[in-house]
Design a protein around this nucleic acid. Sequence first.
DNA 1: GTCTATATGCAGATAGAC
DNA 2: GTCTATCTGCATATAGAC
Lengths: 192, 192
Amino acid sequence: MERSLSARERLIQATSNLIELQGYHATGLNQIIKEGGAPKGSLYYYFPNGKEELVAESVVAHGLAVTDQIRKALADTSDPAGAVHAMITYIARKFADTDCVKAGSIASVALETAHTSDRLRTVCAEIYNAWQDAYADMLIEHGIATERAARIAMIITASIEGAIVLCRTHRSPDPLLFIAEELKALIAQARR
Amino acid sequence: MERSLSARERLIQATSNLIELQGYHATGLNQIIKEGGAPKGSLYYYFPNGKEELVAESVVAHGLAVTDQIRKALADTSDPAGAVHAMITYIARKFADTDCVKAGSIASVALETAHTSDRLRTVCAEIYNAWQDAYADMLIEHGIATERAARIAMIITASIEGAIVLCRTHRSPDPLLFIAEELKALIAQARR
DNA sequence: GTCTATATGCAGATAGAC
DNA sequence: GTCTATCTGCATATAGAC
């Protein structure tokens, strides 16, 4: 872990990394402080509400960073179908390059906490909305009607999150590559 | 829990229900035996390898039942796009009727165990393949080329699993209803 | 602000009576 | 085959020294 970051930042980073790899319940605070190079006292100093608060901040930080990446990947293109296709193949490559782990999903936190923590459920919902809005805005800019754009943005978000589940299960980037093709076809057809 | 089922069956049923609601790590064996009405001794008598074995059997049983439902829902139709649409709206209704919980997904087990249990990861992979094959067979029967059918079957599987994550996060069946529309459009277009 | 030692509880697993 | 009592370990969280 980078020593240049503050203890607080290191804890958030470590939390993001470990939770993406292992999930929410399987990741213990002892492991987080070890990986983040900070003692337990600091954790409860910066995050008085414990694990829920630490994970909430970590999901927000991660989610907003991904939102930026999505918006940048889709900006200034004349080919929305191709841009979405390129973005997903990029995710697939990153996934393959990290031993079939890192793809930027928050699905494990969303699934594991939706039923027990309203705070974490709401945080995940807001991040998903931000991602979906990024897709929808781009589609609307290219002439797709608002309601249709919202639906296509929804299937982009859902199929990426679902494909990441399949990629991890099969230990292969193929599910992401397959849905990239089909989403490209869907968007191209919607513009006619 | 039904007293007519054997203790073994009750344990498997209870495991399926609790894990769909809470996830893998959040569901304890003590809760499973309480809900299933069986003592811990019976659990380790029937499942000597403990939680991993119990959950593996439970995922297989659940997964095969869902495979049957998919195949039945798609059999004997002249309209593949409409059949997929109807099937997904049926899942959305069941989800809404169960306080936004039950939709038949195995994503939480898949995500939580992909990195730590090869047995559970493989079991989930086989179930996902069975679902995907059910979609692909139907599409091929209706004249879609084999490779395209495999890709569409993949996006059906991925977007349903992903939409269920979104549905649980937003506490709404809308994500499933939205992807049902778009998958219908995609399949209809592929047949032309 | 930083760190360690500890409290409390429940997890999965096992031993052994019946 | 069925059941209970118990083991060991790690979880989150806290108290308090420095």
